[in-house]
Structures are given as C-alpha cells and as structure tokens.
Write a protein that binds this DNA or RNA. Structure first.
Lengths: 146, 146
DNA sequence: CGGCGACTTGGACAGTGTCCAAAGCTGGAG
DNA sequence: CTCCAGCTTTGGACACTGTCCAAGTCGCCG
C-alpha cells in the first residue's frame, strides 16, 4: 500500500515521470495536511527543477484518481490529505488554520432524497470549527478580563 | 428582523455609515450565497464610490457579529451567506461550484471529548459534495460512451 | 457647531492557482 | 536498440482573492 501508487498510475495509462514519483513520495512520507506550495518545496528538495505548474497539475490528477483528498478548509490555500483510506473528517482552528483529524467513526447523516436538489451526491464532509489550545491561550493574554 | 441590523450595529458601538448600510441592504435583499466581489459589485450599483477594501472589512465585521456566515466551500472565493438564522448545511457541485441549502434539520453528530484535540469547538459544518443536474447533463454529451 | 477618532479610500502588495507555447521525455512500435 | 508520437514538464505571464497602509473623510458626542 505504500509504493504501488506508481503502478496504479501506469495501469491507468499515465506515464511514469520522475516528477510524479517525487510528488507521490512526498505525499506518502507525511501524514499531515500539506498545501500545494509545501508539496512543491519538499519535492524541490529532491528534484530541484520541478516547477509549480507540475505540482499543481499532478496534485489535481492524484486527487481525481482518489489517491489524495483535496480539502477546502477555511485557509487561503487548499490542503492535500494523503490519508484517503479511513475516510475521516476534520477539526479546524478558525484563528490559525491548524487542522486535526477526527479518527473515530463519526460520520454525516445521509441526506433525504428530497433534499438532493437534483444533484448526484458522492461524499459528505464534516468540518468542526473552533479554537485550538494554543490560540485560546494567546487570547487570554490579550484579553485578561480581570 | 429585516431591517434592524443597523440598530444592532449602533448598539454595539459601530458607526452607521452609508457603506455599511448598503452592504447590509445587499445581503438582506438576496438569499443566495454571494462572493465578496459580487457584494462589491451590487453595492457599487447603489454607492459607486465604495471600495473593495471597505466591502471586505465590512463583511468580516458582519461575520464576526454573526450577521452573516462565511463559507469556505471548494470555490476560489469565500462566500457570504445572509441566512444565519436557521443554521443549515450545504450541497456543493464539484464541477461548477453551485451551492444549495440543506433545509431540513440535518445536523452533524457531536464529537466525543477525546476527539477534541484540546480545541474549544463552536460549530460543525457539513458539506455534501456531488455533481449538479446541469453538470451531469453536459458530462453525458462530452462522454457518450457508445 | 466643532473636534475626536473611527471609517473609508485607492493603490500597492502578497499568495494562490491557471494558462500556454516550446522543449523534453516516456513508452510502444518496428 | 532506435525512433517517433504525443503526453509531460517548464517557466513565465496572468487573473483573482484578499490584505495592508497612509491620508483624507465623516459620524457622533458634547
């Protein structure tokens, strides 16, 4: 499960380029939520000539193939989550954009058919918003309220 | 409930400027999900000199006051939802970014304490992803499969 | 009515992401 | 093994979203 991403790529008619391999490695080697820019930085550490455009398009491809999940949480940039398998939800700090995974089998309720608005649904994503411990602490300093 | 936003503003020490009034009107007059840019365009139709910076900061203030909800769905821009009262969730088309409201009392499950990661939670948001009817149709044309 | 200070302005700026023509490289055919 | 078609990458220009700031404006209180 750790390596065959490259095999799955070839099986679907994608060419195996050094760039795709490197991006795949970066994603496999880290369980956090990376922005496209972070992926580019880490990939460039191994393959310095890799361009931003390639990283963006590669991430889109991986996302379309279901190898990576694209997350649009509050922050400025989209994040890419290599942990696709155990489908999970997220907690987001509205102050600093920190992201945590919800590990347990928490899941969103199914939507009754009359609420579908003609759409074909394929996934439900829950985002728990709040303030992380670190941000809550700094707030106390700024707002002593004594 | 339709007008007193301006009252609530003054009560909290905010000044009543023409710009804030116009932005409030734009939001009140429409039940769809508007981007900051759309709000600016509509506001400018009434008050041509209003600047983008003002619209952005006003939307942030309204959002902080709970008069408007800021939505970070997949699209490039954040959307602002004037419908705060019946707290509701959303359906998003991953192709065209169309947004629909979930009207019914569907809601996300509470998160067990051991999953909080030290955060203080204040809201849970469910996003149902899928493909809207219009996009599904065009896909059929592009991919006849015969 | 006058002044304080919150508010707005407009333009510069930073970050994210897209697009495109040209050059490079993969993988299959011969 | 070599060659070629065409998929990929490159890099730079571009569009868009959102932030910041100094200067000027104007709402509100006295």
């Amino acid at each position: 499960m750790s390596a065959p991403l490259v095999d799955r790529l070839r099986d679907r008619g994608y060419r195996l380029t050094a760039q795709r391999r490197v991006v795949a490695e970066v994603l496999a080697g880290d369980n956090t939520h990376l922005s496209a820019d972070e992926v580019h930085t880490r990939a460039a550490a191994v393959l310095p000539e890799i361009s931003r455009a390639t990283v963006y398009s590669t991430l889109q491809q991986f996302s379309a193939l279901g190898e990576v999940r694209e997350l649009a949480l509050g922050g400025a940039a989209k994040l890419y989550d290599p942990n696709v398998e155990p489908r999970h939800h997220h907690l987001v700090c509205d102050r600093c954009d920190a992201v945590y995974d919800v590990a347990r089998g928490v899941d969103a309720p199914d939507l009754p058919a009359q609420e579908h608005h003609g759409m074909v649904l394929d996934a439900a994503e829950i985002i728990y918003h709040g303030v992380c411990a670190a941000c809550a602490d700094t707030a106390v300093i700024a707002d002593p309220e004594e």
